[in-house]
Amino acid sequence: MLSNIFTVSFFVSLLASTIRLATPILLPALGQTFTQRAGILNLSVEATMTIGAVAGFAATFFSGSLWLGILSGMVFGMLYGLFMAILSVTLRANQVIAGITLNILGAGLAVFFYRVIFGIQSLPPQVEPFKMLKIPFLSDIPFIGVIFFQHNIIVYLAFIMVIVTWFILEKTTFGLKIKAVGENPKAADSKGISVNKYRYIAILIGGIYAGAAGAFMSIGYLNIFTESIIGGRGFIAVSVVIFARFLPIRAMWGALLFGVASALQLRLQALGIDVANQLMLMLPYALTIIALVLASKKAEFPSAYTIPYSRKER
């Protein structure tokens, strides 16, 4: 029985879906690496992604352009990030409370505007999603080709962004400043780096990544929008950053781990295997807890993590 399930083609399709399913966790996790490095824990990524999903879907639906959809997701993701920036940086609110609040507000806004724009329809409106882009030659390699080189362009871009994010954070002065305001804001301030400015930028960058990932869900992975389209991926991305110890390359491995968990559930379900489906669906969430348990003790949080900065409190 087992040998019938675990065939080569099963593993190939499992790994291919792993890469696809890692994408909507990888993108927000990379964005949150900036945000968390700057000392901000932004739990509202979840709602930001939902907003990105609606914004991307609507833009593509009316313009017919998928790239406009991604752009729209990014713009609205950034705009929603602005709320978090105002609350946590300017008003110096408790970041957890601000994040929870913005999740409630954001979920409401996303669904409200989706309903207002599209009304109630018996069949959900659909778009033509991003097509698979086979990389010439490479996609013809047996097994490897299917696993790595037969995805849509956003998947490739997400993995390219791992390198880009790593480069910006580790090799540029801009990255250095982001890390400085999260590690030692007082010292950064005394060197003339505006703490508030760089924290704003770090939150907005996180919003852009999250918005793009949301749009990927509605026009790249699926071709519709649903209320529960993000399904906790934003929260998982936040935890990926923590147990990846705030490093982009490790965040990629974390995202792939979740990709495997979700892919396994989908693949087994597709084969009609009677492992209680709900128990499989728990896997990514249970995995998050296990990963946090294993990594949190060792994780070196930025020194000013979740602490608002004020010049007065020297």
Binding site: F83, L87, L91, A93, N94, I97, A98, T101, L102, I104, L105, G106, A107, G108, L109, V111, F112, R115
Partner: peptide, 16 residues
């Protein structure tokens, strides 16, 4: 969803 929006707004104003 307007109910959720109002809920969120209330807490934002409390924070502010």
């Amino acid at each position: 969803s307007i109910v959720e929006i109002v809920q969120g707004l209330i807490i934002i104003f409390i924070i502010a």
